[in-house]
């Protein structure tokens, strides 16, 4: 419980930090405050859950995230960015966070489900996009683009979709593929829970 509460506090601090750091006139002016502020919450919501964790933190997280999300929207408006793409991004991140949190909670109800979700999280949610971007940013000059299979696996991650919303005013569309992954993980959790 203490570890999870600490994680939530770190999440709040990271989210607030990107909004309250003094604004410079460089590249960061191009970035969307909504995407930056909601990233820690998206990562927190997708994390694998351990068995028996109280639902209190899950109920508390929206109350902690909402004011920072509203502040990020206010900053989008103040910086002259289009509000519609920012609102769409916020709504999509909310949908992803809710779906993945439900899937994590459902998978945590069985031992096998917990293992499946943990493997899926490390391989698909965090691992694949990280591997693709590491390979392409550091290795692309020598080895070219990442393999098609790895790039395809990275597309499943909500973090890959999030990267498309990072530039202010950029509409990344709806994260259908990531939502499908979340729904699949939830269905897996339900099936494993029903096993005798």
């Amino acid at each position: 419980m203490f570890g999870e509460a600490l994680g939530l506090a770190v999440c709040w601090l990271l989210s607030a930090a990107v909004l309250f750091l003094p604004q410079q006139n460089g590249w960061e002016r191009e970035l969307s405050p909504v995407a930056l502020a909601l990233l820690p919450w998206l990562v927190w919501a997708t994390l694998p859950r351990s068995r028996g964790v109280t639902g209190l933190l899950d109920r508390l997280a929206p109350a902690l995230a909402a004011p920072l999300a509203v502040l990020a929207l206010a900053l989008e408006r103040a910086r002259g960015h289009a509000l519609a793409p920012a609102l769409a991004s916020a709504a999509a991140i909310l949908a992803l966070a809710v779906l993945f949190a439900l899937a994590a909670e459902r998978d945590a109800r069985s031992v096998l489900g917990r293992r499946v979700y943990a493997v899926a999280w490390f391989a698909l949610v965090a691992g694949a996009p990280l591997a693709v971007h590491t390979l392409e940013s550091a290795g692309a000059p020598l080895f070219g683009r990442a393999s098609n299979a790895l790039a395809l696996a990275a597309q499943l991650s909500p973090l890959s979709w999030w990267l498309g919303t990072l530039r202010a005013g950029a509409g990344a569309g709806l994260p259908w593929i990531a939502l499908a992954l979340g729904a699949a993980l939830w269905l897996v959790g339900r099936a494993l829970e029903a096993r005798p």
């Binding site: 109920r59 109350a63 004011p67 509203v70 206010a74």
Partner: peptide, 20 residues
């Protein structure tokens, strides 16, 4: 938890970016 959060949302909307 919703009441303090709602008040904080209102503050954020009206004070955020007011300097602009």
């Amino acid at each position: 938890a919703a009441l303090p959060a709602a008040a904080a949302c209102a503050l954020s909307w009206f004070l955020g970016g007011a300097g602009a």
